[in-house]
Amino acid sequence: MSIYNQDISNIFKKKKALIGYITLGDPSVELTYEYGCTLIENGVDIIEIGMPFSDPIADGPVIQASHQRALSTNEDVSLRQAFKLITKLKKRFPKTPIVIMTAINLVIQYSVEKCFKDAKACGCDGFILPDCSIEMATDYTKQARKAQISLIHLISPLCSSSRLKKIVNASEGFLYLISSTGITGERDAFATNLSHIIKSIKAVKDIPVAVGFGISKPDHVRDIYSFADGAIVGSHLIQVIAKHKDKNKTCEALKKSIKTLLKT
C-alpha cells in the first residue's frame, strides 16, 4: 500500500469507504465547498473533485450536463481553482482524502510536473485520469510518484489479465473498478465478474478497490461492500445538486441521500 498516502490507506484500513464525486463550480465554486463539507460531515470518506471539461468522453449525460453548467457560469473552474478549494476543505477536514478527477488535457495544459507539485502542496491526495490508458501513463506515473501524488487508475471488467497486472502495479492509493462497460451514470445491472476481478487485483498487489459507475441505491452499496473496499457515487449526487436550487435544501437532500445509501 502507498506509503505517502497514509490518509487514503487509513480510511480503507478502518472500514468500507464511500467516495463521493462533485463537479467543481456546479452550481458555483463556493457551493462546491459547502456541498463537499456536507458530504464529509454525513459519512462520505473520500471526496472526488470532478474538473469540468468541454468534451468528457467517459461521462454520462448527468455529469456532462454538470460540466457544462460549471463551464457556463464564467467563474474560474480551472485546476488552480480546484487547488484553492482543496486547501480550504483540507483546513476543515485534514484527514479526509481528496482526489481530483480530470480529463488529461487539463493536466497537460497546466504542465504535468507543476500540476502534481501544486496539487501536493494544497493537500490533494491523488488524481484520477479517466482518459489516460495505462499504455499512455508511464510519464504521468513517474511525475505523480515524484510529487507523491497517487495516480488512481480505472480498470474495466473487460480488462485482460496482462493489462490488469500493469494497471495494478502502476496504481497508488486505491483502484477504481468500473462496474460495467460504458459511461458514468445510473444503471440497473453491474458486470457479474466484479468480485472475481477484485481477487485478480489483490493477487497482484494489496491495494484497496472501489467500485464506481452507476451506484445510486442502498442495494448497490450493500452489494459492493460485500466484495469491494469502497463504493463511488457520482451521477446520483450530481442529480441531487441539480434538482435543488436552494443551498440549504440541497444540503438537506445530500444528507438524506448519503444516509439512505449507507442504510444497510
Partner: peptide
C-alpha cells in the same frame, strides 16, 4: 507501437475501450 507520430497521437481513452 503506441500509436505516436513524433509527439502526436497515442490512445488517450478510458480502459474500457482499450480491449
Amino acid at each position: 507501437r503506441n500509436g505516436f507520430f513524433g509527439e502526436f497521437g497515442g490512445s488517450f481513452v478510458p480502459d474500457t475501450l482499450m480491449p
